[in-house]
Design a protein around this nucleic acid. Structure first.
Lengths: 209, 209
DNA sequence: GACTGTGAAGCCATTCACAGCT
DNA sequence: AGCTGTGAATGGCTTCACAGTC
């Protein structure tokens, strides 16, 4: 792989560009300029070109980019040219909502299993899925070839279930718990901290008052 | 206010520091050093000191910081020394989960109302709340003195409900829809894009393979 | 004329390293 | 001796500006 250090912010924007291109395809657009993408997603046109330049030359000077072609490149760069299998640990409100969230499936993330420790949750159904006990974690990870683990358990249990998932062979973790998790270098971790997001809003409201 | 430009990343870390300090208070710690905070949340000690330096001098050289005192300062800086009233638009899986999420209430964010357009959702109850039709948006915003609006509607409706909230007087928006929203300068916006998060994980898995 | 691709410049955040207190 | 607070150095991302191409 091109493994030159790519800024995190660039990767996030590529994801957003790809969604915008998908939208343009739906509208029947054939070509698009960096300026148009920029306006569509709220960045500068130079930013769009720089982001793409990390991965090659996809456009034609004086013309722009072919929408479907660029979309294909981006999906490949992002690793979305095939499906990823997902397991969710924690069948509370948030875990259950994520298990049923259509947005994931649309982008190729397939939730294969959802586990919990709570007796009263085990056995209940979420769409096609049945909530299973935590004991089957390792078995399910291997059986379904799970790539991504989603943590939606309370803070005090987050590190423990994370360790268990890594033990079982999961290589990427999406953490919704409000705890800083420790993972080995070869495991990819991202945190979605809902409270932090609200608190940044709060800070900004106070500032501009 | 101290309105010198504070880096966004700094604000996010302050939120995380404050949670770690809360944890230390629970463990009965009296004082803490920047190095200890750093280890606790996974940053450098210089980073911790620089972040705090934007807002004043809170520590004692040779000693460290008083845990409860620093916690108090951070909560004040973040604007968490009082409650914020929240409205959620969209009573789908995600909106419902957020309406019931305890983590918000613990940090002073009180969900006062949840609205939807879908006939079949209106009237159903979520804890203390009843899902109401979108028509009452303006009325509820004024009645409950709503500060924060949470958008959990499908992409194609996101901009419309955002405009309506701003019209009604909401000054901060937390957007969970996969759309780039346009808001006036005096409205604070944050995006929590679940798919983008998974796609960044995907990218990193492909890179390190 | 329009638009891409890119070196250079500018800007911003993080890390370093040490003076200053306790 | 231990730890904070901070100017200086570093590193990294974004914007500028223009040569190159259609």
């Amino acid at each position: 792989m091109k493994a030159f250090k790519i800024p995190e912010a660039t990767v996030q924007r590529l994801s957003i560009y790809s969604r915008y291109l998908h939208q343009l395809m739906g509208e029947g657009e054939d070509t698009v300029s960096s300026g148009q993408i920029a306006r569509g997603v709220g960045v500068s046109s130079a930013q769009v070109r720089k982001d793409l330049a990390y991965f090659g030359e996809f456009g034609t000077r004086g013309v722009g980019y072919k929408v479907d072609e660029l979309y294909g490149y981006l999906m490949e760069i992002l690793g979305l040219d095939h499906e990823w299998n997902v397991i969710i640990i924690g069948a509370g409100k948030l875990g259950s909502a994520l298990a049923l969230y259509q947005g994931f499936r649309e982008r190729g993330f397939v939730v294969k299993a959802i586990l919990d420790v709570a007796e009263n949750k085990i056995g209940s159904t979420l769409g096609q899925l049945r909530v299973e006990p935590l004991d089957v974690l390792e078995k399910r990870v291997k059986e379904y070839d799970i790539h991504v683990g989603v943590v939606t358990v309370p803070a005090q249990e987050a590190q423990k279930v994370t360790d268990q998932m890594i033990q079982a062979g999961v290589k990427a973790i999406l953490n919704f718990s409000p705890r800083v998790l420790k993972v080995p270098h070869d495991v990819v971790l991202r945190n979605v901290d809902l409270s932090v997001n609200l608190e940044v809003l709060s800070f900004n409201m106070v500032q501009y008052k």
